[in-house]
Nucleic acid binder design. Structure first.
Lengths: 134, 134
DNA sequence: TTATAACTTGGAGTTGACTCCAAGTCAACC
DNA sequence: GGTTGACTTGGAGTCAACTCCAAGTTATAA
C-alpha cells in the first residue's frame, strides 16, 4: 500500500502516466526512485506532492512557477525560506483575487440562469426584445 | 467616445489587438463593422461582449464553448433559450466546484505562510495577529 | 510630396502542456 | 524457453490560444 507503480499513482492522483513522466522530465517532480528493474516507485509523499501540484495548477499557477516554488522548498539555505514566504504570500494574494473574479463571473451566470429560468418555465412567456450582443 | 479603433478597444478590454483580430477570425466575435477605409470600428456593445468573453474565459470556459454559448444567444428560436439555460447551469456548477478547489488550495498556502512566518521571523518581532482584520 | 504611422490581410511561428509512439527491457506465467 | 504485458527511454506530434510577420492600404503631418 505504501509503494506503488506509476499506474497506481496515476489512478490516485488523476494525472495520466504520461503526465507524471512528463513532470519528471521537466524537473517539476524529482526523479522517482526506481526498483531493481528500473521502474518508478511512488510513496505517499510523492502522491501528496502530485496532488499539491494539481491544486496549484488549478489555481492558475504555471508549471514553471510551481517548479520555482518547489525548488525553493528544497533549499537547505534558511534564506530561501524568506524568499519562499514572499512567493507564497504573493501567490496567496493572486489566489484571493482570482477567487473574487470567479465569484463575480459566477454571479453573472447565476443572474442569467435566473433570467432564463423565468423565460423558460412559464411557456406562455416569450423572450421579449433581447439585448442581443451584436 | 462611442466609436473607437481596435487599439482603443484593446486598451479598454485588456486584450491585445492581435487577440481581438484572432477572435474575429475564429468567429468568436462577429465581423466588426469597418469604416470607409476598411478599418475596424468598435462601439460600447462590442466592448461589453469582449469583456464578457474574458469573464467566461477566466471562469475556465474554452473559446469553443464560449462560441457555442454565444451562438445560442443569437438564436431567435425560443427553444434555444432552454438549451442555453442548461449550458449556463452546467457552467455555473463547474464554477462552483472550481471556486471550492481554489479555496482549498488557498487554505494550504495560508497554512504554509503561517509556518514560514514562524520559521523566518524571531518570535518577538512577529506581527501580532490582527484581532480586527479589515 | 514624401514620410510616417496606423491600420489591413492571410498565413506562419510560438508556447505551454500534454499525448503518443517506436524500440527496447524485464519479470512472471505457461 | 517463449510469450505476454507492464513498464522504460528519447523524441515527435497535437492542440488551444495566441503572437508575429510580410506585404499592402490609407490618413495625417512635415
Amino acid at each position: 500500500m505504501e509503494a506503488m507503480s506509476i499506474k497506481q499513482a496515476a489512478v490516485r492522483t488523476g494525472l495520466s502516466e504520461d503526465t507524471i513522466r512528463y513532470y519528471e522530465k521537466i524537473d517539476l517532480l524529482p526523479r522517482a526512485t526506481r526498483n531493481r528493474s528500473g521502474r518508478r516507485v511512488y510513496g505517499a509523499d510523492d502522491l501528496e506532492l502530485m496532488v499539491f501540484i494539481t491544486h496549484l495548477k488549478s489555481a492558475g499557477m504555471s508549471l514553471e512557477v510551481i517548479k520555482y516554488y518547489l525548488s525553493l522548498s528544497l533549499e537547505k539555505d534558511p534564506n530561501a525560506a524568506s524568499e519562499r514566504l514572499v512567493l507564497l504570500t504573493e501567490q496567496k494574494e493572486l489566489l484571493e483575487s482570482k477567487i473574487a473574479e470567479l465569484q463575480a463571473a459566477h454571479k453573472v451566470l447565476e443572474h442569467k440562469v435566473e433570467h432564463y429560468t423565468e423565460v423558460c418555465l412559464p411557456e406562455k412567456l416569450r423572450p421579449q426584445k433581447e439585448t442581443t450582443p451584436k
